[in-house]
Structures are given as structure tokens and as C-alpha cells.
């Protein structure tokens, strides 16, 4: 009797195993739309002040990024740390280098915030960093929940 129970249980698990197997074509992720994601981040996430497009000055921000990397930068400016950055790389191999540069950048901003605008430091501490393929987003906001929801 116990043997039969065991075999039945095994059968149940085998069925569960099959049920969990992905379908051949059904679950493939859709292509990532960075521009749409950026627009959603700008529209839906709450920021301390309206973000200005300062992409024309983005080249001053970083040195030695992988060649061909472009940056979109939206910043609240002034005493607010709130910002969104989108890095578009030629390919995903450069993402770790950009992440390192971003880490240094946030480090420097956080030090500055701790000295002059302490309330902003936690936003930098909890900055949302997300990469997908050759794209990398950095979102600095108190509304990390919405940002994370949009990004993932």
C-alpha cells in the first residue's frame, strides 16, 4: 500500500514538473523599450521638483565611459538630488564600467548631500540602478517604489 502511495506521489510530482516547464514560444520577453521606460519614469515617479532635461551638459558628468555611450540626464537641480539618467551603450559589455562610474558619482553626490542637504542623502543611498541589455537607468527619488515597479 505504501509503495503504491509512493508511486502515486512520484506521479504527482512528475506532473508538477511538467506543468512548470516553459512553453516553447509563449514566455519569451518582449524587446525592451528604453525610451518608453524613460518616459514612464519621468511621468509617473514623484520627484521633489520638476525635472529639467540637462542632457546637453551630460558630457561633463563622467570621464572614461565606454566609447559610444550616450547619456540622457534629467535633474531637479538646486538643493534637490532627484534625477533620472539613462545610459545607452553600444553593447552590454560596457555596463559594469558604467555601473562603477555611477557608483563613484553617487558617492560624490552623497558626500556633498550629507554636508549641505542631509535630507537628500537617503535618496542617493537608495538610488535605483537597473540595467537591461545595453541600457542602464539610474533613478534618484524618494519614490523608489514607483520607479522599481516601472523598471521591473
Amino acid at each position: 500500500m505504501k509503495k503504491i502511495t509512493a508511486i502515486l506521489l512520484a506521479a504527482v510530482f512528475a506532473l508538477a514538473f511538467l506543468a512548470c516547464s516553459p512553453k516553447e514560444n509563449g514566455d519569451k520577453p518582449a524587446a525592451f523599450d528604453a525610451e518608453a521606460t524613460l518616459n514612464k519614469l519621468l511621468a509617473d515617479v514623484k520627484y521633489a521638483a520638476p525635472l529639467q532635461d540637462v542632457s546637453q551638459y551630460a558630457d561633463f558628468l563622467f570621464s572614461d565611459l565606454p566609447e559610444g555611450t550616450s547619456i540622457r540626464h534629467f535633474s531637479a537641480g538646486g538643493k534637490y538630488a532627484d534625477a533620472v539618467l539613462l545610459f545607452t551603450l553600444p553593447d552590454e559589455t560596457g555596463v559594469p564600467a558604467v555601473k562603477e562610474a555611477v557608483s563613484l558619482y553617487l558617492d560624490s553626490l552623497k558626500l556633498e548631500a550629507e554636508r549641505y542637504e542631509p535630507a537628500e542623502a537617503s535618496k542617493l543611498q537608495n538610488a535605483v540602478i537597473y540595467d537591461n541589455g545595453a541600457y542602464l537607468f539610474v533613478v534618484i527619488t524618494a519614490d523608489t517604489q514607483t520607479a522599481e515597479k516601472i523598471l521591473g
Partner: peptide
């Protein structure tokens, strides 16, 4: 990991009231 929390190692910061620069901007 899709999300990375920036600067995780730096946790010994004092509370904002303590770190608030004695400077009133």
C-alpha cells in the same frame, strides 16, 4: 540582480539631524 542599492557598505552615517552640517544653508 536587477536592482542594486547604491553604496551599501556605507552605513555608519549619523542621523540627518546629527549629520546636518551646522551650517544653515
Amino acid at each position: 540582480t536587477a536592482f542594486v542599492t547604491a553604496l551599501p557598505a556605507h552605513t555608519d552615517t549619523a542621523t540627518p539631524t546629527e549629520t546636518a552640517s551646522g551650517e544653515t544653508p
